[in-house]
């Protein structure tokens, strides 16, 4: 049985980092639609991949969380990215495979991946 011991090591590492950080409005927020429509369309692995990528890259100013149904169920999985001081960007028909590019180009690099945004959809 794997214990929570590894979590203690992770806590110690994070504790030293958290104290250096500002909490609040300077964070980039990634919200994944997690209502029935989103879940059925595959939102959970998308959120898990964002978590994985942010954790592996050690991005300290990014939070990944969930939101409900925003009313465009036909475009699920839907992901909203809020960069402080910028307009919200909505990515649609997301998949796990598309996550890496959004993290690299948009969240780290500051360039919106327009191939995946809702404005690029014509259906």
């Amino acid at each position: 049985m794997k214990s929570l011991d590894e979590l203690k090591a992770l806590r110690d590492k994070l504790q030293s980092e958290v104290s250096l950080r500002d909490d609040g409005d300077d964070k980039t927020k990634v919200l994944v639609g997690m209502a029935t429509c989103g879940i059925a369309a595959g939102a959970r692995p998308v959120l898990a991949e964002f978590v994985e990528q942010v954790a592996t890259r050690g991005l300290k100013n990014v939070t990944v969380s969930q939101t409900g149904c925003i009313g465009i169920c036909q475009f699920e999985p839907v992901v909203e990215v809020f960069v402080p001081g910028k307009e919200k960007v909505t990515y649609v028909n997301m998949s796990k495979e598309k996550v890496a590019r959004i993290v690299a180009d948009h969240i780290v690099g500051g360039n919106i991946v327009s191939d995946y945004t809702i404005g690029n959809r014509h259906s």
């Binding site: 049985m1 794997k2 929570l4 590894e6 979590l7 203690k8 992770l10 806590r11 994070l14 504790q15 958290v18 898990a48 964002f50 978590v51 994985e52 942010v54 954790a55 050690g58 991005l59 990014v62 939070t63 990944v64 969380s65």
Partner: peptide
């Protein structure tokens, strides 16, 4: 509640903590 006790103030929403919980449950 046990996880938060160990975390001792570190947010459970930290992506690294979330990734840890997923693999902890999976492996066990």
């Amino acid at each position: 509640r046990e996880v938060k006790q160990v975390l001792d103030g570190v947010p459970i929403s930290e992506p690294e903590v979330m990734a840890y919980m997923a693999s902890h449950i999976d492996e066990n």
